[in-house]
Nucleic acid binder design. Structure first.
Lengths: 130, 130
DNA sequence: GCTTGACCTTCCTGTTGCTGGAAGCCTTAT
DNA sequence: ATAAGGCTTCCAGCAACAGGAAGGTCAAGC
């Protein structure tokens, strides 16, 4: 099937699919006219990539996951380790974002928000220790 | 003062400071030898940038904040609006990350994580609707 | 059989926010 | 005098694509 159909079925934009080929995550066949020709298995890989990327795995991590995916003798422990590490990363990011949100919200709350020029947010950004 | 000192005082790497000059966020003086010469005010701006960037403001937003910062007649309402919009963005990101984290954790929890090749995580990524 | 329009191809550029390195001055300390 | 370190510029590249130009191809309709 052609790239447009593969895009529709996998949920990825065609541009992204071509990019994934360029960085060698998928290797579709080529028709006589030069058009890319995707098998069901290719589409499967693409959908896999879309989900994994959507879950926050980097392209490098997706590459590793794909090699596990391709490897019938992989140990599920390997995959679990990667998933749990990712959960840890996400937790760290969540904590960071939360504290950041609170700092900003606190600054905004102390701002009277009118026409006067003095503003605690600006002052907080300019010199606050936090 | 020279860039090294400015870096130390502002908490930004020298490379980043030069980059900020390139994109015209700061405009230090130059000494006779061609060295950049930072005033206290420059360092202040740099520290402001470091904090704002650390709070998740984009460089474009920082530029806007700096122009407010420079403008003595600004309304604090403008700043408050930006800050609150940013809080909203962060909340959205938090929600997204949280759901992502839960999906991954759920996948990991159902994985026995031993030497056997079958792995619910891989299967979940390969075909799950979620 | 010819046109139209939708697709496909490649290639190049731009995005965001830096970071690293190379080559070469300048300064400071010994 | 010399060595180490800091400063300068410029060039390259990272992630992960997105946008667009220029051109080839294909199926349908008239």
């Amino acid at each position: 099937m052609k790239i447009g159909d593969a895009a529709q079925r996998s949920g990825l934009p065609a541009k992204t699919i071509r990019y994934y080929e360029e960085i060698e995550l998928v290797a579709p066949a080529r028709g006589a006219n030069g058009y890319r020709d995707y098998s069901d298995n290719d589409v499967h890989r693409l959908a896999f990539l879309r989900r994994a990327r959507g879950l926050g795995f980097s392209v490098a991590e997706c590459r590793a996951l794909l090699s596990l995916y391709d490897d019938d003798s992989r140990a599920s422990a390997d995959v679990k380790r990667m998933a749990l590490a990712k959960v840890g990363e996400i937790d760290a990011k969540l904590a960071e974002l939360t504290s950041l949100r609170d700092t900003l919200a606190r600054l905004a709350a102390t701002c009277h928000g009118d026409d006067r020029p003095d503003c605690p947010i600006i002052e907080g950004l300019a010199g606050a220790t936090s």
